[in-house]
């Protein structure tokens, strides 16, 4: 378990990292970036897998199962649309 001040430190530093990453990004990339960050929180998939992995009984298993479906959709869908968008950006010098 990650608890107490260690947890708070991780939270604070990660928050600053997120803030700094977006801070100086040109507006032309805002849509792909929103989509890309949408993909990154698809990491919820590993949590959903663990939840399903230790779920007991019908209802817990069902909810865990749905959770994994939703999380996989988030991760895969987020990746596919972000890559499609970014693939289209090209410079006239290319």
């Amino acid at each position: 378990m990650i608890t107490g001040f260690v947890a708070l430190y991780i939270f604070m530093l990660a928050a600053f990292t997120g803030y700094e990453i977006i801070g100086r990004v040109p507006a032309i990339l805002h849509t792909p970036l929103m989509s890309g960050s949408n993909f990154v929180h698809g990491i919820v998939l590993v949590g959903a897998m663990v939840a399903l992995g230790h779920a007991d009984g019908f209802w817990e298993t069902l909810i865990g199962f749905i959770g994994v479906i939703l999380a996989a959709g988030n991760a895969v869908g987020g990746y596919v649309v972000t890559e499609r968008m970014l693939d289209m950006f090209k410079s006239s010098k290319d």
Partner: peptide, 25 residues
């Protein structure tokens, strides 16, 4: 937050980064 519940560092970090970046966006 669910990363904290599961003790899962990858979820904590990725989730927080997106939370902050998304708020700014």
């Amino acid at each position: 937050f669910e990363g904290f519940v599961l003790g899962n560092a990858a979820m904590i970090i990725a989730g927080t980064v997106v939370g902050a970046a998304g708020t700014l966006l």
